[in-house]
Amino acid sequence: MNYKHNKEKVIKKGMELFWSKGFHNLGVNEICKETGMTKGAFYNSFKSKEAFLLTTINSYGELIVIHLKNELDNSELCAFDKLVELYKNMLTAQTENNYKGCLVNNTMSEMGATNNTVADALSKQFTSFLKVIEPIVSEAQQNGDLIRTISSNTLTEIIHTTFFGFLTRSKSTKNSGHLLILMTSFINSLKPNSNANNS
Rank of each mutant, 00 (worst) to 15 (best):
residue 102 C to G: 03
residue 164 F to D: 10
residue 180 L to W: 00
residue 151 S to P: 00
residue 44 N to R: 11
residue 150 I to C: 03
residue 128 S to Q: 15
residue 192 P to V: 14
residue 153 N to E: 14
residue 55 T to F: 04
residue 145 D to T: 09
residue 150 I to E: 08
residue 88 K to H: 09
residue 42 F to D: 04
residue 18 F to I: 09
residue 38 T to G: 10
residue 46 F to I: 04
residue 57 I to T: 02
residue 194 S to K: 11
residue 89 N to H: 04
residue 62 E to G: 07
residue 73 D to P: 00
residue 19 W to F: 15
residue 86 L to R: 03
residue 93 A to N: 06
residue 107 T to L: 08
residue 111 M to H: 03
residue 52 F to M: 06
residue 189 S to N: 02
residue 170 S to W: 01
residue 22 G to F: 13
residue 35 T to H: 07
residue 135 P to N: 14
residue 7 K to W: 01
residue 52 F to R: 02
residue 79 A to H: 02
residue 36 G to N: 13
residue 81 D to Q: 10
residue 160 H to V: 06
residue 94 Q to H: 04
residue 64 I to R: 04
residue 16 E to Y: 13
residue 37 M to V: 12
residue 24 H to L: 13
residue 189 S to F: 04
residue 84 V to I: 15
residue 37 M to I: 12
residue 33 K to T: 15
residue 84 V to T: 06
residue 23 F to W: 14
residue 106 N to H: 05
residue 50 E to I: 09
residue 110 E to A: 04
residue 6 N to Y: 10
residue 105 N to M: 00
residue 140 A to T: 07
residue 6 N to K: 12
residue 126 F to A: 06
residue 185 S to V: 02
residue 60 Y to N: 05
residue 69 K to W: 01
residue 35 T to V: 12
residue 186 F to N: 04
residue 92 T to A: 14
residue 3 Y to H: 07
residue 162 T to F: 10
residue 67 H to K: 13
residue 34 E to W: 11
residue 76 E to F: 04
residue 66 I to Y: 07
residue 186 F to Y: 14
residue 158 I to G: 02
residue 108 M to F: 07
residue 183 M to V: 05
residue 98 N to D: 12
residue 96 E to K: 13
residue 87 Y to V: 02
residue 123 S to W: 10
residue 98 N to T: 07
residue 64 I to G: 00
residue 36 G to D: 14
residue 84 V to C: 02
residue 38 T to V: 09
residue 102 C to M: 06
residue 124 K to M: 08
residue 4 K to L: 08
residue 75 S to H: 03
residue 166 F to S: 07
residue 30 E to K: 15
residue 130 L to Q: 09
residue 27 G to L: 12
residue 167 L to D: 01
residue 14 G to C: 09
residue 186 F to R: 08
residue 180 L to R: 09
residue 40 G to D: 09
residue 32 C to F: 12
residue 101 G to R: 05
residue 106 N to G: 04
residue 28 V to R: 13
residue 152 S to T: 06
residue 78 C to I: 09
residue 133 I to M: 08
residue 30 E to C: 07
residue 59 S to H: 09
residue 149 T to E: 11
residue 15 M to D: 10
residue 6 N to P: 00
residue 3 Y to T: 09
residue 134 E to T: 12
residue 142 Q to G: 08
residue 3 Y to K: 08
residue 79 A to N: 01
residue 73 D to V: 02
residue 38 T to H: 07
residue 5 H to F: 07
residue 159 I to C: 06
residue 80 F to C: 01
residue 163 F to V: 06
residue 189 S to D: 04
residue 129 F to M: 11
residue 66 I to F: 08
residue 140 A to K: 04
residue 183 M to F: 05
residue 42 F to K: 06
residue 29 N to W: 11
residue 136 I to A: 01
residue 13 K to E: 15
residue 13 K to Y: 04
residue 127 T to Q: 14
residue 1 M to A: 12
residue 130 L to K: 09
residue 69 K to V: 01
residue 184 T to Y: 05
residue 12 K to E: 14
residue 170 S to R: 05
residue 96 E to D: 14
residue 103 L to Y: 01
residue 125 Q to H: 05
residue 149 T to I: 13
residue 181 I to A: 09
residue 40 G to M: 14
residue 198 N to A: 15
residue 192 P to W: 14
residue 108 M to T: 02
residue 110 E to P: 00
residue 144 G to I: 10
